[in-house]
Design a protein around this nucleic acid. Structure first.
Lengths: 394, 394
DNA sequence: GTCATTTTCCAAAACGTTTCGGATATAAGG
DNA sequence: CCTTATATCCGAAACGTTTTGGAAAATGAC
């Protein structure tokens, strides 16, 4: 039997990367001649062949049209609920679509409609470090919630600053074809910010109060939140209240400082500039600053921190100095992260509903996209959570 | 002046939802006649007109071709780095592309290439509740990291079970045109799971060991992890070790139980079935179970919990019974969530690098997509974090 | 100088959808 | 019966890319 076969080994010159037509066709012609023989092809053709075979068969609107015996136009209009198609035809088309397991190609649709039904979430700190304060995550969860309710898609843009150099914000959005974007955790001096305002892509900023035709924002009432915190300390009898703020490039810091000053002054006390320090929103940095502050001004009996993480730093500092929280020093945080309720002692803090922040951002953005303009801005409330890191002055 | 104007109020019959051609054209003809007059149109036409005006002008490959005086083919090939275009021409084209601020339309590209360079992350628990254990979030961050390194896009699928009824997994993936998916937090009896294996869409499962041509998985060595935890307790001299597991439908629970049994038996002790209970991975449920367990079997001096959250529940239960952790009862958790290090007492637990879990999932998936098949499975290591919730038996 | 190859370019088709501008048949109004 | 409006359908163009199959010019081999 075996002797009836003709064995050949064909050595072909390798194909260049370039798509050399003449020799390319020659190759193919050669293969064609060889058809009657079984042969093993160790060529890059293999790849192409495999790809063709692997391509899974998705049903398109055309297939439905063919089966139903109508035009693609009719199928499209039937599926999209237009009134100019007979209910009987529509039923038939729907039936066939279901049977063929049809699902529309969003790419094609987006291409012709110039809308992708997709919004982008630009987060700066989606890395290992940012997991402690789940702020980023909560925003994301909120955004995701609303977005999926509205049948939009959510795509994540993460920006390490190396990438930022390469691609502008506009490019990013346009390339991914998002209809709009939500931006969180960006600093006020970030180059993206300028671009956002200048570009014509609808965008919602979280905690940055900028408004324009295409830009809106969602934030919490940071002034009032800070006032609540400081008033709580004042109510407990504290007269010497320090503050550990974030950094001046953050809008929230500016506002929380404002609230702190408001509350102090409203109570008839005077603000001491030297009791206000910046902790960069970092636990460690806050610890250092608190240490310095408490050493230098031992009369301080309470500290208001612009974030919970920094409050933890302050508590650590106090402990290092042999001070007990809350007996010797009261500490109030801001954010109400999960950790706050579990820490030792449980942290009194200003709770902001960050999930809601994300949710409302998405709400605002999608309203903007759909043309229900309304307003471009939402301010959410805060709530003081009184736990055990604060106590009445003895 | 004003008197020279001719004022008209035109009342048109409102347009039906249906695209009535004859009257539609009539309307338009009418508008045409009115051209010389200024008029205010309170018609649904307004919307269309606005849309046309708003459409931002994006530069396409065609524009570049026109400006450069070459064909679109050449522009495409130039931009994509093919070798059959003169370097001079390429330079010119690149230059023009930059000047015109060109960014390619991914939709169009995806449409013709049948690849979207997008992967989907299917998370079940992206809601308010799941924020305590940032497992979901960590996975997400890990996936996002790798995905963005590889210039893929990440889109989020969240599935409340109401939606799940409406759309099958396959539909979801096909509709969003993702090239592949990563699935996390799904139960073993979830209807999606069957679909995943049956469909031909490449997919990576997290912590579910299923393998096929298009399905791979990433997990940690749960057996070994549990053994480490239990061995630690044994080393401390404990002989009466209970276990609070998750639920039997979770693969990780099955494995962790296996590890627990292995370790106990290897030490020459015998396994007591009645010391093993299920806490549903919930803090509250674990508290209840621990309470029952500790009351019924006061000889138990140590408990191994299949999650940190449940360990917290166990600690609460112990405290309620007047037992001190770790002096009267040692507790080991699993996961090493952020809270673990901050709780009181800090929790001894088995740390799994969940960020890495996500990262490697994305790695595996993208390798699969690009055809570098290698293996379909990765197992990561765990590490025992010894803190203060465990102590030597007195 | 001739033939084969390489370099450089291009027109046209394809991807799957929506929309535009009708076409046809039927119903309503007079 | 004629006119007009309605209901139902369709062909073709468009969206912005990539890829196919070549063509033309330049270069090299002999």
């Amino acid at each position: 039997m075996l002797t009836n076969f003709l064995f050949m080994i064909v050595v072909m010159r390798p194909l260049k990367a370039n798509r050399l037509t003449s020799s390319f066709t020659l190759h193919k012609f050669f293969l064609f001649l060889l058809q009657p023989f079984s042969f093993v092809c160790y060529d890059s053709f293999m790849e192409n062949i495999r790809n063709v075979l692997e391509e899974y068969n998705v049903t398109t609107i055309k297939d439905i049209a063919r089966v139903a015996g109508v035009s693609v136009t009719t199928v499209s209009r039937a599926l999209n609920g237009y009134s100019d198609v007979n209910e009987k035809t529509r039923a038939k088309i729907m039936q066939i679509a279901k049977e063929l397991n049809y699902s529309p190609n969003t790419l094609a649709r987006g291409l012709v409609m110039k809308k992708s039904k997709t919004i982008g979430l630009l987060v700066s700190g989606l890395s290992r470090e940012s997991m402690k304060d789940q702020i980023t995550f909560s925003v994301l969860a909120g955004v995701n919630e609303f977005v999926s309710e509205q049948d939009y898609d959510l795509v994540l843009f993460s920006t390490n600053s190396t990438k930022q150099r390469e691609k502008t914000y506009t490019q990013l959005c346009r390339e991914r074809r998002v209809d709009g974007a939500i931006i969180q955790g960006i600093k006020t001096d970030d180059p993206y910010l300028k671009e956002v305002v200048e570009s014509d892509i609808p965008c919602i900023l979280i905690d940055i109060p900028i408004e324009s035709d295409t830009v809106g924002y969602v934030t919490t009432d940071n002034v009032l939140g800070a006032r609540k915190a400081v008033n709580h300390l004042l109510d407990l009898g504290h007269k010497h209240i320090g503050m550990i703020n974030g950094h001046s490039r953050a809008f929230v810091s500016q506002r929380r400082l404002e609230g702190y000053i408001d509350a102090i002054q409203a109570s008839g006390l005077s603000v001491k500039k030297e009791w206000i320090v910046d902790g960069k929103f970092e636990e460690e940095k806050a610890r250092e600053e608190a240490l310095k502050l408490l050493k230098k001004y031992p009369e301080i009996t309470a500290i208001f921190c612009a974030s919970d993480l920094m409050a933890f730093g302050a508590i650590k500092a106090a402990n290092e100095l042999g001070k007990n929280v809350p007996n010797d020093l009261s500490v109030v945080g801001y954010d109400d992260i999960t950790l706050a309720a579990y820490s030792n002692p449980p942290l009194t803090t200003v709770s902001q509903n960050i999930f809601e922040l994300g949710y409302q951002s998405a709400n605002l953005l999608i309203n903007m996209l759909e043309g229900n303009l309304e307003q471009h801005m939402i301010t959410l409330n805060t709530k003081l959570m009184i736990r055990e890191s604060t106590a009445a002055l003895k």
